[in-house]
């Protein structure tokens, strides 16, 4: 485990903590896309099927269980919690995420890492994660004001994949020495989707202004 990978995982974990903190303390999920959260549940469930077949480390098992558990918890809060669900910005969350699921699944069938059920699902989860943030970004663009916790949540989520890119570069030279097309290209796409958001996030931070994305 190198420092970029660990920093990436911790950033990912922190983004989830920030989101859960927002939901639990403010009892509000305003500005959060339920569609993106649904996609993450699907991403984790399809990627971590190897929990049953392969053991890497205690850290690995623990993190996988945390990601599955927290993503289901967030989904549950937004969908079923008596108070929280009333704050869901349903009308703004209009992205057709089923198209993403279908598109990624077809892509995974065409270009899987390997032709087996678990490997196709693993590839699907990589493709889907790359675009899962889209409904959230669209929702932010439609929101009048973006609260700090929501802004920080999305920033940390983007930073996580950017750190993974550094981790892959590091691992390529020190360890693996092989090109990993599927995660690399997907990871690049995933990070690139945040470019616009990063720009406005850093600007608002430097100017001490409220974060706002131009429509």
């Amino acid at each position: 485990m190198n420092v970029f990978r660990l920093a990436g995982d911790m950033t990912h974990l922190l983004s989830i903590v920030v989101l859960l903190l927002k939901i639990r303390t403010t009892k509000s999920c305003a500005g959060i896309s339920l569609k993106t959260q649904e996609l993450y549940v699907l991403v984790f469930l399809t990627r971590y099927l190897d929990l049953f077949t392969r053991y890497f480390s205690v850290y690995n098992v623990l993190m996988k269980l945390i990601f599955i558990g927290t993503s289901v918890a967030i989904f549950w809060y937004m969908r079923y919690h008596k108070v929280v669900k009333q704050t869901y910005s349903k009308d703004l969350d209009s992205f057709r995420h089923y198209h993403l699921i279908l598109g990624c699944f077809l892509m995974a069938l065409l270009i899987p890492f390997d032709f087996s059920v678990t490997e196709v699902l693993w590839t699907f989860s990589i493709y889907l994660e790359a675009v899962a943030i889209l409904p959230q970004l669209v929702l932010l663009q439609k929101s009048r004001n973006i609260d700090n916790l929501t802004g920080n949540y999305v920033f940390l989520l983007g930073a996580y994949r950017a750190l993974y890119l550094l981790n892959w570069i590091y691992r390529f030279f020190t360890e693996i020495h092989k090109i990993r097309w599927i995660p690399w290209i997907s990871g690049l796409v995933q990070t690139a989707l945040y470019a616009d958001f990063f720009y406005y996030y850093i600007q608002s931070w430097r100017k001490h202004e409220e974060l706002k994305l131009p429509a």
Binding site: F113, D114, Y164, P183
Partner: peptide, 10 residues
Amino acid sequence: KSDGISKDEL
């Protein structure tokens, strides 16, 4: 498999 050894990632 080119990718098997790095499936330890999350």
